[in-house]
Design a protein around this nucleic acid. Structure first.
Lengths: 177, 177
DNA sequence: AGACCATACCTCGATGTCGAGGTATAACAA
DNA sequence: TTGTTATACCTCGACATCGAGGTATGGTCT
């Protein structure tokens, strides 16, 4: 997820680590902050894999900074990942939102974008609950516990909103295609 | 989060690992499945910490099973964690839902339950977006990118639903107190 | 009898993440 | 001048997690 986000931000324009950190903090930091000890090793891994290059520049306001720039391989890796996100990217909301944040990078490929959205649609249409009575998903209305009922109500509202948006956006993409 | 969920399920009644696995799969597995290689070491850690004990029984249908039972320390640890969840438990939706799933275990303490809900309320009331224009959170309506606009719309729907539920439930808890 | 599946638990290496620490520079206030 | 804050990057140990593998038993189907 971090890898995807880094590649996604760098696709727009080169950034140095500190800027990247602030972008990431805005995107996911409210919910789950990422630490330096996570970010910098991740950058190094991407560099080692040849997905980005670093250019050291004299620091504008402080220490020398390393401007990060995607390579062609990095750009390709990002687009591949966006075209074919793995199951966790589709099911886990944090990861899914990261995919959404950068899906516009598949600009000229509305059909590819639609395919990704359709995978999310399929996921949301699977009958699922947090609690089961045997094999049957339990409905919000049957739950006496107010906290568990809350979970189900909130999840339902989210799913409804997302399905509405998915269907509208898919219609638009199919039209453009 | 896994620790919290294990303690939470065992608070209801003793379970063996396999049953626990199925409960966990229902709660979070749809979104993010947990593997054996995660669960069993986690159980061992909890045992080493004295939070649960294992009793080996001849297997009903197969291999001998280890029935897991919370100790008093385990029960206390669960209730402490529920009374004072850390920031990540409050901000990350997956973790927050795990807290909600077991918050009823603070049965006789409606004020403690309300305190936890109020922390989530405070978190949701902070102005936040995924994207910023300088320091100002960007609104869904300003975003041209349909995917990013979707993120903001969905997040808004979730927040609205959750705020409604939070306020209603807090009113009830305050009344009971 | 043999194949297969569900139950039930475990190990281990690879990897990712956290958090606490460290090193600098530049700007600005007390 | 000292302290503080923001910028900017890095290391390292501890730990959690994943995934792929393994070991067993008992039941069902053919």
């Amino acid at each position: 997820m971090l890898k995807l986000a880094i590649l996604g931000f760098l696709h727009d324009r080169p950034l140095h680590g500190y800027e990247l950190r602030r972008h990431l903090a805005a995107l996911t930091g409210h919910v789950r902050p990422i630490s330096d000890g996570t970010l910098y090793p991740a950058i190094k891994r991407l560099e080692a894999d040849g997905l980005l290059v670093r250019a050291t520049e004299p620091g504008a306001a402080a220490a020398p900074r390393h401007t990060l720039r995607l390579t062609d391989a990095g750009r390709a890796a990002l687009l591949d990942r966006l075209r074919a996100p793995d199951e966790l990217d589709v099911s886990d909301e944090n990861r899914w939102f990261t995919v959404l944040a950068f899906l516009r990078h598949l600009d000229g490929e509305p059909a590819a974008q639609a395919t990704v959205l359709r995978r999310r649609l399929a996921f949301l249409n699977e009958p699922a609950s947090f609690f089961y009575d045997g094999d049957r998903p339990v409905d919000a209305e049957e739950v006496a516990d107010p906290f568990r009922r809350g979970m189900l109500l909130i999840a339902r509202a989210t799913t409804t909103a997302e399905l509405d948006w998915l269907r509208a956006t898919l219609a638009e993409l199919d039209h453009r295609d």
